[in-house]
Amino acid sequence: MSTDKDENHQRLKAAVHYTVGRLCQKIGEEHRREFSRQAIAAIAETTFRQCDTFAKDLEAFARHGKRSTVSAEDVKLAARRSTALSIYIQKKSEEFNQEQRDLKKNTGKRKSRDTEEESRE
C-alpha cells in the first residue's frame, strides 16, 4: 500500500525532473550557458514541493467555495501573489475559453453563452 504510493511518487518526480531538464536545457541554449545536473535536480525538487503547496491551496479554495472540484477560478486565486503571473494566467484562461467556444461552433452545437470575463480584482 505505502510502497505503491512511494512508487507513484517516484514516477511523478521522474516526470517532473524530465520536463524541468528540458525546460532548463532550452533556456540554457538561449543564453549559452549550461545547467549542472545538481541545479536541474534542485529545481525539479523545488517544483515538486511547490506542487504540494499549490495543491493544498487549491483544495482549500475549492472547499471554501463549497465545491469538491478545483475550478479555473481557484487557480487564478493561487496566482494572485504576482501581478504579472496573475495577468498571464487570466490571459491563458481566456484563450482556453475562446478555443472551447470555437470548438462548439464547429461541432454545430451553438450555445450563445457569452461568458465574457471582466478582469476581476
Binding site: 487549491l58 475549492a62 472540484t69 478545483v70 487557480v75
Partner: peptide
C-alpha cells in the same frame, strides 16, 4: 477533490 479540465491546463 477533483480538478476541472481548465484548472489542469492553467
Amino acid at each position: 477533490t477533483k480538478l476541472s479540465g481548465e484548472a489542469v491546463l492553467l
